[in-house]
């Protein structure tokens, strides 16, 4: 019962946390570029403004996809905080991700189409990495249950350092930060403008932004599993991880999806196998 309550609480708090993180992200990014940047609450203002706009959409399918994407992200957050199975969570978030691609494919716009294809490449890259991370977690703790992993007596980071690295790479791809901002990027200065999001506007774009906040919370939650023993350790780990994301975002140019499939995926797979082999031997 408490686990379900916890999940419901997370459902309500996750967007707030996600929005705040997005706001902080923008501030720190600006600082690193020696700009002032927007107020920390700017993401909330933006989304509020999007919801205030007149809904205009190309077709119903696109709207449906936006809702499913949000649902997928929200349900996976709920499952995570309710302590459910990692594998179940994995498939639920995959459904959401795939529906984002469907939504983009539902319009004939070439930007949206190319964005969708690139998003598929990104899913193809991070999903295997994610599942390997989950396998590693299960191997180290003996269970796929989030609740069980959470109550593991010692920090998992010590056993799974390489897998954590892989997870953060997957996280960068999932969050579409430079150098992996192919399918859509946080600023529109990109050859396909906003890729998967080009054809979304108004409240539906707001829904997608909301879903994105849920996703941020989810990935940070998964990261938190690696240091679940103390609150301080957990917070430090998350702060360092997110700061590293911002840092990488600001020190690299955007690369191409061919590079991602060639180098990033291979490196990720290699690191995961190394860590898994080490787990089996240890």
């Amino acid at each position: 019962m408490t686990s379900i309550l916890l999940g419901i609480l997370a459902l309500i708090l996750a967007p707030l946390a996600g929005g705040l993180i997005a706001g902080l992200d923008r501030r720190v990014t600006a600082r690193v570029q020696s700009r002032f940047g927007p107020p920390i609450l700017q993401p909330f203002y933006d989304v509020a403004k999007l919801f205030g706009k007149e809904p205009r959409m190309g077709n119903v399918w696109q709207i449906f996809c936006a809702y499913i994407y949000l649902l997928g992200a929200a349900v996976s957050v709920f499952l995570f905080f309710a302590g459910a199975d990692l594998l179940l969570l994995f498939f639920v978030q995959a459904i959401g991700a795939v529906f984002l691609v469907f939504g983009a494919l539902a319009r004939p716009s070439p930007y949206s189409q190319i964005g969708a294809q690139r998003e598929l490449m990104q899913i193809l890259t991070y999903e295997p990495l994610l599942i390997l991370v989950f396998v590693g977690l299960a191997k180290a703790t003996g269970s796929f249950k989030v609740a069980a992993i959470w109550s593991h007596p010692e920090p998992l980071l010590l056993q799974l350092p390489l897998l954590y690295l892989v997870l953060t790479t997957a996280l960068t791809i999932k969050l579409r930060k430079s150098p992996f901002d192919f399918s859509t990027s946080h600023h529109g200065h990109q050859e396909i403008v906003k890729g998967v999001l080009t054809e979304y506007s108004g409240p539906y774009l707001g829904l997608i932004e909301l879903a994105h906040w849920y996703e941020v919370v989810l990935v940070l939650g998964i990261c938190a599993l690696f240091w679940s023993t103390s609150l301080v350790g957990l917070l430090v780990l998350l702060a360092v991880t997110y700061a590293a994301e911002i840092f990488v975002d600001n020190t690299m140019a955007r690369l191409t999806w061919r590079w991602m499939l060639g180098s990033a995926l291979l490196a990720g797979l290699a690191l995961s196998f190394l860590n898994l082999v080490w787990l089996y031997l240890a």
Partner: peptide, 16 residues
């Protein structure tokens, strides 16, 4: 040029 390849922080640096 830096902005064109998604390197925003470099963009700011040059304009600075």
């Amino acid at each position: 040029f830096a902005d064109g390849m998604g390197f925003e922080s470099q963009f700011m640096q040059c304009w600075k």
